[in-house]
Design a protein around this nucleic acid. Sequence first.
DNA 1: CGCTGTGAACGCGTTCACAGCA
DNA 2: TGCTGTGAACGCGTTCACAGCG
Lengths: 259, 259
Amino acid sequence: MSVSSQDIPTAAVSRLVTYLRILESLELQDVSRTSSNDLAERAQVTAFQVRKDLAYFGRFGTRGMGYTVPLLKRELMRVLGLNRTWNVVIMGVGRLGQAIANYPGASDYQFAYVGLFDVNPDVVGQDIRGLRVRHADDLGSFARATPVDLGFLAVPPEHAQAAAQTLVSAGIRGVLNFAPTIIQPRTVPGSSDVADEWKQVSVENVDFLAGMKRLAFYTLNPSLRPSELKPSEPKPGELRPSDPQAGNSPDLANTDVEE
Amino acid sequence: MSVSSQDIPTAAVSRLVTYLRILESLELQDVSRTSSNDLAERAQVTAFQVRKDLAYFGRFGTRGMGYTVPLLKRELMRVLGLNRTWNVVIMGVGRLGQAIANYPGASDYQFAYVGLFDVNPDVVGQDIRGLRVRHADDLGSFARATPVDLGFLAVPPEHAQAAAQTLVSAGIRGVLNFAPTIIQPRTVPGSSDVADEWKQVSVENVDFLAGMKRLAFYTLNPSLRPSELKPSEPKPGELRPSDPQAGNSPDLANTDVEE
DNA sequence: CGCTGTGAACGCGTTCACAGCA
DNA sequence: TGCTGTGAACGCGTTCACAGCG
């Protein structure tokens, strides 16, 4: 019950993000109710999976009824930590960093860019989105003055580790790494095990180039793709209710594909 | 040997990309040999894992010796399909699409952008990186004239499904989706079961916003992070001081409360 | 009854121990 | 001797069947 202090599959967290996204979409369409089956279909997983994933964090539904969209959405936002504001700095304000800073949708979710940092003199001092680009060396003092929760790494891969170190040394505990490199969660030189500040740090990767290569592989080897069609809930005589609203896809069914 | 038509964990494919990246880095440093232990450390997995992953695809090492960097690199490129050229079109040439088109590193790996497409009249006709932006409606005829292997989706999320459909209808079998949406691998309206062209399509996602949210979650709940410290290969002779294994459980994980 | 919530079974991916070969 | 390659064990995440409650 509740969040047992451990063992939540990382895949479950990713799926939670997906469910949240679906709920937002449903809310925009003024759909007020949903079910594990409906969510499953939209998320391309099984209904079992949906219920299990939600069960890791609480009990959000009503038996016999399903889930209330705004309520479940609010709960998932809370679980994911999206009911607070996250102050973010971006390291690296090249093309990628600027694209990130300008990407719509981020601010929707309580992510606030509070600082932009770079080492390139051509960039430092510029104004982007109303934020002055500062020198990376000033991150430490900046972070002492302004609370910074997360750092986005958008520097060239050869500088990623050093930039990450700068973030961590400034006390930042969450790093979103866009560089095509593995960030070593430790101070690299020697194993300086000085009460490692890295032990508290979470790193997530957003890896465009890796995505390209995975795609190349699976496009070349379609037979090795994970079969994405999961079996539906096997209910005899299933009627599918709800969907009070118009214009939805009332179709049914077991989309079955096989090979 | 070689790619037997079997079950290869998707995670293994991702790790292969990582190994390849490490090998490239080693080659740049003129390191000619490596080992499963070395790769494991750099990739942050176990040596067992490295050997098993490689074993899915062949035998690339020499017992007692390890792996030859250029050789293993070449083999992994072959396995991943990176020893050929992939012709790529980009759908959506807004800020994100342009950032992708200009991102360095892509062309290194035999990915060639051959077409840019959009529906925005302000963008269509522009020249980007020497490529004229065409209207999305022209993709079909374009693809008939020029072989296109992959399509990168960089359109706003509400247009992602339709744009994906355009790609697939043009005969493209691989889609890299940058939009924060799930692409339904089927023609959405009704179940038009016309020998579903989608069945042959691979979709990979690169999801910036999802990464942000996962990061928020794990930064909020550090104790739920997947423990990234894997046991090393038990080396003879090497004494490994048992890490204090600092009590990593406590603190706020309970997202309960409140309601 | 309908759909959620959940302990238990299952199967897959990771881990392991060791066989095999330079 | 050293490190790879691999069948087998293990454990975790997914799947399942059904209990629980509207």
